[in-house]
């Protein structure tokens, strides 16, 4: 199962490497969001620093939406999902593979956005190993949760006109707990609020586990032929 999943993930990433849609559209969009937040908050350095965790995660979620939309769209092109289904690969593997590809892209986006907030917003991580570890683990766990939920909900919109507007209203409420949890966790890492980030991390982990498991179980139902 894992080998098939890696195969699918590599297929999606190869498509991305050739088409460069994420690189040429999603990455600039992510940076644009950071710039817009600066305008919205009137370039108030203090406010930007205080709210960096929240702004960072909103930017991640918006960019993630685009990345997921892209991952869904390549399934629609040339009825790829049909040929995948006919290839005899287990739907769970397809889910895992697609989620892994999205997750890899999200991690890259998060790294980029982190560099962005350090430069633009003067963000500073507490200079302790634990704060740094919290930052890294949160970023990874949140990416897993977002990509699993995103892949599942993305599959719901395959082959539908108006997909671009449907996905956000389906997915954003689902991701609300991730936004809350990841922001609070980063609050701890950045020292912008006295909260226990590790406790919040457990919520993110729960979310990730729930959606990975649910996706593995449910993806087959969504892939069934009508």
């Amino acid at each position: 199962m894992l080998r098939d999943a890696v195969l699918i993930a590599r297929k999606d990433l190869r498509i991305e490497r050739r088409s460069r849609v994420v690189l040429s559209q999603v990455v600039p969009f992510a940076i644009l969001v950071l710039v817009l937040f600066a305008f919205a908050l009137n370039a108030d350095r203090q406010a930007l620093a205080d709210f960096t965790p929240g702004l960072f995660w909103v930017a991640v979620l918006f960019s993630a939406l685009l990345a997921i939309q892209r991952a869904t769209a390549i399934e629609g092109i040339d009825a790829t999902s049909d040929s995948l289904r006919l290839s005899g690969i287990d739907p769970s593997s397809i889910f895992l593979g697609k989620a892994m590809a999205v997750c890899a892209q999200l991690l890259a986006l998060e790294v980029l956005l982190l560099v962005g907030v350090f430069i633009f917003y003067d963000a500073e991580v507490d200079s302790s190993a634990s704060a740094f570890a919290l930052l890294v683990v949160t970023a990874i766990v949140a990416a897993i949760g977002v990509s699993a939920a995103g892949t599942l909900y993305g599959a719901l919109t395959i082959g539908v006109r108006g997909q671009e507007t449907l996905l956000p209203i389906l997915l954003l409420p689902v991701l609300a707990p991730v936004l809350i949890g990841a922001t609070r966790s980063f609050d701890d890492a950045f020292g912008s609020a006295a909260v226990n980030g590790w406790a919040w991390l457990s919520l993110l982990a729960l979310f990730a586990v729930v959606y990975v498991v649910f996706g593995l179980l449910a993806y087959g139902i969504l892939m069934e032929e009508s």
Partner: peptide
């Protein structure tokens, strides 16, 4: 049938979300 399947998956996923949303907001 496609719609029914997709809807059913969402309905179940959303119900799983009830406790998650509740807990996250409670802590928040």
């Amino acid at each position: 049938h496609v719609r029914a399947r997709r809807s059913a998956v969402i309905a179940i996923a959303s119900t799983i979300m009830i406790p998650i949303v509740r807990y996250s907001v409670t802590w928040w």
